[in-house]
Amino acid sequence: MTHQVFFEDVHAGDEIPQLRKNCSTQQLVQWAAASGDFYQIHYDRDFAQATGLKGLIVHGALKNAFLGQLLHDWIGEGGQIRRFGCSYRGMDEPGQDILCRGVVTKTYTLDGRHYVDLDIWTEKPDGKRTSPGTATVTLPGRA
């Protein structure tokens, strides 16, 4: 695992390390099997086009899970994910970069626990945010 980030080192406005994804169609099939979402618009191009889409699209829930990985990898062994999620606002295609990002919006301590709120999202290469969301994690203190 990466080094541990501590609560005292995190401030509102900080951006956390980005996570870059680029789904192959094979990955979308892996996700279909793992999640139980077998809707054909994610792996059958003819089916997707028959519904009016340009082609295959990435599952919204997979992008949400990417944001889960973004948080998990950042908080390290000593952190905990308390809450995360996103809205599915735009479509992403396989073979195109999906950049997962997060910015700290608030830090606070309650009942001895150190909380960090974040805005999280996925964005396309042109910067358009396709899955905006929020998260709350807890981090260990240095003390």
């Binding site: 919204g60 889960g68 905990q80 809450r83 995360f84 996103c86």
Partner: peptide, 12 residues
């Protein structure tokens, strides 16, 4: 039907 979004809350 569209899936509008999902949020998970955990209780570690």
């Amino acid at each position: 039907v569209l899936n509008g979004g999902t949020e998970y809350e955990y209780f570690p």
